[in-house]
Amino acid sequence: MSQYAMVIDLNRCVGCHACALACRAEWHVPVQPGYRRNWVKRMGPEMTPEGMSYTFYPGLCNHCDHPVCVEVCPADPVDKVFKDFRTGKTKKMTVKATYKEPFTGAVLIDKERCIGCGACVEACPYHARYLDETLDEPKADKCTFCYERISRGEIPACVKTCIADARIFGDLYDSNSRVHKLVHGGAKRLQSKVVQIGPNVYWVGKPKDLNLLFKHYAPRERTWETVDNGIEDLGRRGILKAALRKGTRIKVL
C-alpha cells in the first residue's frame, strides 16, 4: 500500500510564491484567470482567537483518498495496466479519464481520453482543477504530484524550488519517511465537517495560522453533489460514450 502525500509547514513557509512559479514553468501552465496547478493565497493580517495571523495557503491538488473528481468523470471506463515505477509490479484496473493511480495514490488525468467536459473541475471542493481552453481540444488539468518527474527519479518541481524547505513530500505508508512522521505527529488535513474526502496534503503550523487557513480555505461545500448527474446528463453521456466506442469524430458547431 502506498500513498504519496505532501506536508506543508507554515512555520517555515515565508509566502514567497516560488512553488507556484516553478510549477507554472515546469508544466507550461497558460496564464489565464484561474489557470494554475499550484497557488499561494495570502491571508491576514487578521485577528484569530490565538492572536494576530498573517499566513499563506500554498495549495495544490490533494490527491484525495476518495477523489470526487474521479467519481463524476463521464468518460467510459477502460482497462488499463499500471506499473509501479519503484518495484516494477503491475496492476490492471478499469479507469475513466481521471483516476487514482494505484501505486502512488496520485490522482491523474489521461489527457488522451479526457473529453474536456469540465465535470471534475466543478466537482473539486478545493478548486484544484481548471479546464485548459487554450488547447485546440480543451482538457482538464491539475497537479499530478509531478508524477512524470517522480517516476523518473526526480522530485516535484514545487518541492525542488521551495526556498524555505516548507514542502515535505513522500510516501505516507513508508514509516521511515518524513511525511509519515509528520502526519503521525499531528499534521492536519484541510477539511471541514461537511467535506471529508481524505486530502493527502497535510498542514503544520501555529494554531493561529492553521485557524486562519481553515477559516478561509477548508472546503464547506459538497461541490461534487451539484455537478449535473441527472438522467438528462446520463443521456448525454451515453451519446458521448457511444461516440467514443465507435471512434467517431464528431463535428461540433
Binding site: 473529453i115 485546440d136 481540444e137 451519446i239 469524430r249 464528431i250 461540433v252
Partner: peptide
C-alpha cells in the same frame, strides 16, 4: 448536434480546431 452528426456519420472533418475526441 452531436447526435445528428453521429447518426449521419459525417464526423470526418475537424471542428474547433481539432477532432473533439482525437
Amino acid at each position: 448536434t452531436c447526435m445528428a452528426m453521429a447518426a449521419l456519420g459525417t464526423g470526418g472533418k475537424q471542428g474547433l480546431g481539432g477532432g473533439l475526441f482525437s
